[in-house]
Write a protein that binds this DNA or RNA. Structure first.
Lengths: 164, 164
DNA sequence: TATGAAACACACTGAGT
DNA sequence: ACTCAGTGTGTTTCATA
């Protein structure tokens, strides 16, 4: 039974003290719920002074715990209402070619190398279904593709669970 | 040949004037490159007064063009280094059950309904590969799964192209 | 690391164009 | 729909503990 497995380890690169102490976890939680909170407001919520909080957040950014901040734009509003997921199985020796072409194709917003029969999973945004042809034709020079168009999104991308 | 197709339409809900004029597109571009820019700084960059820019951004938010702001946290730093994509084919009549279970499973950070042989595509984060078992067992009550573990990510999630 | 005070920058409002 | 000017916060730096 799975519940007998060890609890998730408190990672945090420790050089003496753990990076993710109580306060930093609360800061992450607050910022995750509202990434535009002012440092003063954050400070109030964790009961510290603004400069102290500013420095802690800066440290989390520099350590890479906070990777960055992202603006979420509605794809349809900028003319890209069609979202599709494409699995790619590269031909022999064409693996890095696929990675290359995908990197310089702006319609591809993310690309993962995965285990299984297919090597890559791509997220693609286009203006209309026929526009997928352009993207797929490019990729098909180096491998075969399996495309699935997004019909709806029961769970919109949401933050990771913060429990540790 | 694909290049003969019509250009991407300038969408923007027009009630007289298009929502996405030159200035708003520049605002989106600047905010996409740095979502934490101050309104004053934004104003400087587009050559307007801060209140004017504040109102324009507010309007973009209210219209849903700007969906929100997101904090990107390194999954490994909070103890979830394993990322996997799971395709789910629900059993007959179990379609909405899968959507339900997936919604209340925090390890699932996004879920798309897609065309093709499988109905759903899920993104899952766990502490270690064996922890996938918990998530998959839940889902397997209502359908079959195909799991692919992420080995690397040649293209990290990146912003949509803003050309129109 | 943290705090407190001072200097500076920003957000917000209301009046005017 | 935008600018300008005034007020209240927020941010940043530095001295200090």
């Amino acid at each position: 039974m799975a519940s007998t497995r060890a609890a998730r380890p408190a990672i945090g690169i420790a050089n003496g003290k753990p990076l993710l102490d109580e306060v930093n976890l609360r800061l992450l939680a607050e910022l995750r719920d509202d990434p535009r909170l002012s440092m003063s407001e954050l400070a109030r919520r964790v009961g510290m002074s603004p400069p102290a909080v500013t420095e802690r957040v800066g440290r989390l950014e520099q350590a890479g715990v906070i990777r960055g901040y992202r603006l979420e734009i509605d794809p349809a509003a900028i003319g890209l209402p069609v979202s599709a997921w494409v699995r790619v199985r590269p031909g022999p020796g064409q693996l890095h070619r696929v990675a290359e072409v995908v990197r310089r194709t702006p319609q591809v917003t993310e690309c993962h190398r995965i285990t299984g029969d297919d090597c890559f999973l791509l997220h693609v945004f286009v203006a209309a279904v026929p526009d997928l042809e352009d993207v797929l034709d490019e990729i098909r020079q180096y491998g075969t593709t399996t495309t699935a168009v997004v019909v709806s999104t029961p769970v919109e991308p949401r933050p990771l669970p913060l429990s540790s």
